[in-house]
Simulated scan of single mutants.
Amino acid sequence: MHLHTLIGRFAIFTAGAAILASCSSGENNSSAGNTDSKEETRAYETEKGEVSIPSDPETIVTDYYAGELLAVEADVSGSGPDAFSNPFLEEQLSGAEDVGAPLDPEQVLELDPDLIVVMYDDNYEQLSQIAPTVHLPYNPDTNVQETLDTFGELTNNQAEAEEFKDTIETTAEKAKKRLEGTIGNDDTFGLYELTQNGDLYVFGANGGRGGQAIYNALGLNAPEKIQEEVMGGNAQEISMEVLEEYSADHMFMTTFDPEDTGESKENIQESDVWANLDAVQNEQFYFLDFDTYYPYDPISINEQIDLIADKLAE
């Protein structure tokens, strides 16, 4: 499995000629065509150049940024399927529709959005004919605070973005107090992922898997080797034979196992490498649920802070 599949989102790169025809026909049924000429707009610089977007967008469709948009209290009427498997977004997305990944222009058209925000540029031209479309490539920011700034500015909800920053800070401070006296000042913390076919990855702070909760919000330290080799990116593939070199006092591992076979997890637990890790011998090796720790939007990160603190406090 390619690293991009693991650290990014699971996008399917297809497009239909019939869809293109329906979105670019002579009969303009798009919200772009029906927009009130008096609606206030502003220029927004994107990877595709400058886009004129609503000053205060009211109905937004996105492929993978539902959590980021909801964190700044923007309205999400449609999202890609990833968001609906996120346990922290279930309630807020109860009225939203799954519009596919990549976004299905026909389904998007039915929702009549006034803004579309995409991580991937599949169907970009068709989507742009429906509503102003902003392309924000995967992982444009280096921490959750920057992410909130980005989406607060995009939606003109800067005050809401600042409020959520305060929420995360408060959650982190309370969690740190719960951890006082339970972990050593010099303890190190590492994030790892095992795939269904046995590939092994080490994650930094900005590739999901609880990285922002552990390294940013809680301010916990990675081992020196991870700091030097992984923190500058999202993740790094390693072999099982060198896992000990990247080990930490506390090790957190997700397992990407979509078929729920359990084989890769069972295999690692039966290995001598795993058994000889200090974290295993000290009962400080934690398996984490993939769906819970895969997301890296602000809402998920805020919840992950408490979950990580609870595991360490046990």
Rank of each mutant, 00 (worst) to 15 (best):
F84V: 02
I7S: 02
G198P: 02
E259L: 15
F203V: 01
M253S: 11
F189T: 12
K265A: 11
M240H: 00
D249E: 12
D114V: 05
V108C: 13
L115A: 09
I19C: 09
V242S: 15
L103S: 07
S85Y: 08
F252K: 03
N29L: 14
A172E: 07
E153F: 05
L307H: 09
Y201P: 01
E224W: 04
D278M: 06
F10L: 10
N221T: 15
E163N: 14
E180W: 05
H4R: 09
Q227H: 02
K176E: 15
Y120M: 03
S239W: 05
E163A: 14
G208A: 10
G100Q: 11
E160V: 00
A213D: 00
Q145L: 07
T62R: 02
T195Y: 11
E90H: 11
K311E: 09
I53H: 03
I168Q: 05
L109M: 15
Y201D: 00
E241M: 07
T142H: 07
E73Q: 11
A66T: 04
E110S: 14
I268M: 15
N221L: 08
D141C: 03
S77M: 05
E303P: 06
Q236E: 13
G33L: 10
Y124H: 07
P132N: 06
L93F: 10
H250R: 01
A18S: 09
G95R: 02
T188N: 09
A159Y: 09
Q281Y: 08
N86I: 01
S79D: 04
L154V: 01
D278I: 05
Q304V: 02
L3Q: 13
E229I: 01
Q92I: 00
L6G: 01
T35A: 15
E90T: 10
V273A: 14
Q107Y: 03
D56H: 11
T62F: 05
V118W: 07
